[in-house]
Simulated scan of single mutants.
Amino acid sequence: MNSRLSLLEPRSRARHLALAFATAGLLGLGTAASADTPQTSLRLAHVVNSDDTYHIAATRFQEILAERSDGAVSVEIFPNASLGDERTLLEGMQIGTVDMGVITNGPVANFVDEFSVFELPFLFPDAESAYQVLDGEIGQEILDKLEGVNLKGLAFAERGFRNITNSRNPISEPSDLDGLRLRVIENEVYVDTFRTLGANAVPMAWTETLTALQQGTIDGQENPINAIYAFNLAETQDYLTMTRHIYAPALFVMSLPKWNALPDEVQALVQEAAVEASAYAREQNAATEAEQLQALADAGMQIVDSPDLDAFRSAVAPVYERYGDQFGDYLPRIQQALE
Rank of each mutant, 00 (worst) to 15 (best):
T59Y: 11
N80T: 09
Q62N: 13
A58M: 07
A58F: 08
G96K: 06
R60C: 08
L89N: 01
V75N: 00
M93G: 05
L83R: 13
M93F: 06
R60I: 06
M93T: 00
G92K: 01
T59M: 13
G84H: 05
A66V: 09
D85S: 14
T88I: 08
S74A: 13
P79E: 06
I77M: 04
G92W: 10
D70N: 15
D99Y: 00
S82G: 01
E91P: 06
D70A: 15
A58N: 07
R60G: 03
G71F: 02
L90D: 08
L83F: 07
D85R: 13
V98P: 02
I64H: 03
R87Q: 11
V98S: 08
S69H: 07
D70W: 05
R68Y: 08
M93W: 07
N80V: 08
E76K: 11
I95L: 12
M93K: 01
E86W: 05
G92V: 06
A66H: 13
E67L: 12
Q62H: 14
E63D: 15
Q94I: 12
P79T: 11
V73C: 04
V75T: 00
N80D: 15
N80I: 04
E91C: 06
L89V: 08
E86F: 07
T97A: 06
Q94W: 12
T97R: 11
S69T: 04
L65Y: 04
S69D: 03
G96H: 07
I64A: 02
L90T: 01
R87N: 14
E63A: 15
I64F: 03
L83N: 12
V75A: 01
V73W: 05
F61A: 10
R60S: 03
D99A: 01
V75K: 00
T59S: 15
F78I: 00
L83V: 05
R87K: 13
E67P: 04
S74D: 04
L90Y: 07
T88N: 10
P79K: 05
V98H: 14
N80Q: 14
T88M: 10
E86S: 13
L83P: 02
E63L: 11
P79Y: 03
A81M: 03
D99C: 01
E76Q: 07
D99G: 02
R60K: 15
V98F: 09
E63I: 09
A72C: 03
I95R: 15
L90S: 03
D85E: 13
Q94M: 10
V98R: 11
T59N: 13
P79L: 05
A72Q: 06
F61Y: 14
D85P: 09
G96R: 06
F78K: 02
N80S: 12
M93V: 04
D85V: 08
Q62Y: 05
S69Y: 06
R68K: 15
I77Y: 00
I95D: 14
I77H: 02
G92S: 09
E91M: 12
L89W: 07
F78T: 00
I64N: 02
F78H: 14
A72H: 04
L90W: 02
I95C: 14
V73L: 01
L83I: 07
D70C: 12
A81L: 02
F61P: 11
D85M: 08
V73N: 01
D85K: 09
G71Y: 11
A66C: 03
Q94D: 04
L65V: 13
I64S: 00
G84S: 10
L83H: 10
S69R: 05
R68W: 11
M93Q: 01
G96N: 09
